[in-house]
Nucleic acid binder design. Structure first.
Lengths: 343, 343
DNA sequence: CTATTTTATGTAATCGATTACACAAAGCTA
DNA sequence: TAGCTTTGTGTAATCGATTACATAAAATAG
């Protein structure tokens, strides 16, 4: 008896048919109380567990949801996934996680894998891609499988998205730095083919313009999200004829690298130089010099993304509308950018 | 044509039967080259994708593997999962992740969910449990589904495990602290009903004994893995008549809390007090005062755990042996415990 | 040119659960 | 008591892919 009990086993045991067993187990009204009781008891005794694969094949619903993220082991994505999991698990969904490693081909592979695993929906944060080819995403829509972007989105018809207001966050950060007396604000930019990075860039620019500050192209440094790139970027900036007196980094890790390098050069933070990060990675508040940053509410983002998916699945008309949820970011202003203490 | 193409659709298109289509797609030798070519072309043209649910039902193998961890959003577990994913994905397995939230009931639920999702194996790191009831784990074994523990294990027959040598790590850390001149070493302990924490405790004790140092019960503080508990623990220790001059914390987060509190009390680290953590969380090397800690090789642990699973699945005899892999931990000795600089 | 082997394909069962439809038994009405 | 409902079960198809077995066609042997 190492194997599994099926409804047929129960049926045989009770000299009834599998149909009756199924009805008993599913609270179908067309069954007598006595039989139902008997079946439930026997099922329990025989340790019956429903085979969800058979159910999935029959119903066409796998109760699996695919999640694609660039990588899982950063606080942000891990927390979003946790949020998704916490919202979907009570609804009976399993979460299948794929990592794209910021690689377009890998991402296409992921989509294919999830599609023929018959997932009921795909929640994803797209990787840095050249914009050209969205063919593979169209396929998801064609198959009528809900597709929902979180954080890193792409404008597509009928596709919902859950993001934070990156423009607003960026604008506020820049404004804050200006209010602290910084007038030469450098900017560490992510890949601007991604909407989030483009939005942040626009927020930064607009805030400068609104404060009659010039945009200095030398201050715009493209970076990847890690410590070393932050260090290198500072090297470049300090070598300028007219170096900046603040950095707004769209990555906490790069912000950390910047701070390390600035300290090595004996530049006082925040007195001589302010630094602002992005993402509220745990370490930012653990540092000796705590780092100002923005919280992207990853847990909430995950939960809402899951909810948007559930709404779509459960909407009777299966309407073809894309819903757009924008969360408000929350600035965490800490020591690395606080010259004027809050009262 | 929003729907999916099945082998029947292809068969109809070509006026052959589904069996032939299946054979063509599966490189079955019993088929003519011409038919095979035709089928493959048509399948491609019609954008056929195999329905893995049907395959799973037929074969009894879902190609899903369940992973249960206390939580996903810590660097350690996220990295282990990443390792597992990287090893299993190329083999065609999907990874389904469940969080137990350190809750026994939730863990039982997870097991049940995974079992009737027909996973081909379960990889898990158990939560803090009273030892009593392992009934639910036995069921996994009975169903002949490979069960593999990583990091947090429990001694069970036929169950493989991948861990680091916690005893050894702990012994080396304690030895190191003693060599740095610390003779009153406090210990932040996790829940000792878990083997890893019991092993670490033994390593600590043995090192003290081997160095003729007394074990002071007042120095043993049970903690949970977070910053606040570390701070509170230091409060207690400093209130002792004979306070310690070092802390070995089995949690990096608690170690960080300890350091924060010690600094607030103007105690100099490492001159007057040494601190050693556990886990090599990213922040430990980012701090102004870098924190000594142990690397648990999570990525490697994940990959090896996956490999142990694959070996078990692929072993012809399906032998009932449990394999035990013990990884060697690597101490990262940093500023928080370095009085005597390495040459 | 018949007998035998090989090759390619079709037929139908199977995996486990659900459900439309059929139907028998019991209860109810007039 | 004939006729109609209601209630509870059984029968069989279905979801999509695989595969043991049967069989027709072609190739080879003698």
């Amino acid at each position: 008896m190492s194997g599994k009990t099926t409804i047929y086993d129960i049926a045989k045991e009770l000299n009834i048919t599998a149909a009756t067993v199924s009805r008993a187990l599913n609270n179908n009204p067309k069954i007598s109380q006595s039989t139902r009781k008997l079946v439930l008891e026997t099922a329990n005794k025989m340790n019956y567990k429903q085979n969800r694969l058979a159910l999935a094949l029959r119903s066409g619903k796998s109760n699996n949801v695919g999640v694609i993220v660039p990588r899982i082991n950063t606080n942000f994505f891990a927390s979003v996934i946790r949020g998704i999991e916490e919202a979907l698990h009570p609804e009976g969904y399993q979460v299948i996680i794929c990592q794209s490693h910021e690689d377009k081909n890998r991402e296409i592979e992921n989509i294919n894998t999830l599609l023929n695993a018959q997932v009921d929906g795909i929640l994803m944060s797209i990787s840095n891609l050249p914009n050209e080819n969205d063919h593979y995403l169209e396929r998801v829509i064609q198959k009528n499988i809900p597709l929902i972007f979180f954080d890193r989105k792409k404008e597509m018809e009928n596709v919902s998205s859950v993001t934070i207001d990156d423009y607003q966050a960026s604008y506020e950060i820049t404004q804050h730095l200006i209010e602290q007396g910084c007038d030469k604000i450098a900017y560490f930019s992510g890949d601007r083919t991604l909407e989030i990075y483009e939005d942040r860039y626009r927020g930064y620019q607009q805030a400068l313009l609104d404060n009659n500050l010039q945009i200095n192209e030398d201050y715009i440094i493209p970076i990847k999200s890690n410590v070393v790139e932050g260090r290198d970027a500072v090297e470049k900036l300090l070598a300028l004829e007219n170096p900046p007196n603040a950095i707004f980094s769209t990555s906490d890790f790069a912000a950390l690298g910047a701070i390390q390098k600035l300290k090595e050069r004996n530049i006082k933070i925040p007195e001589d130089f302010c630094v602002f990060g992005f993402g509220n990675e745990p370490f930012t508040k653990f540092m000796e010099l705590t780092i100002s940053t923005v919280d992207q509410a990853p847990l909430e983002m995950g939960k809402i993304t899951a909810q948007v998916f559930l709404d779509k699945i459960n909407s009777v008309g299966n309407k073809k509308t894309g819903k757009t949820v924008v969360l408000m970011p929350k600035l965490h202003i800490r020591q690395s950018s606080t010259r004027i203490p809050l009262i």
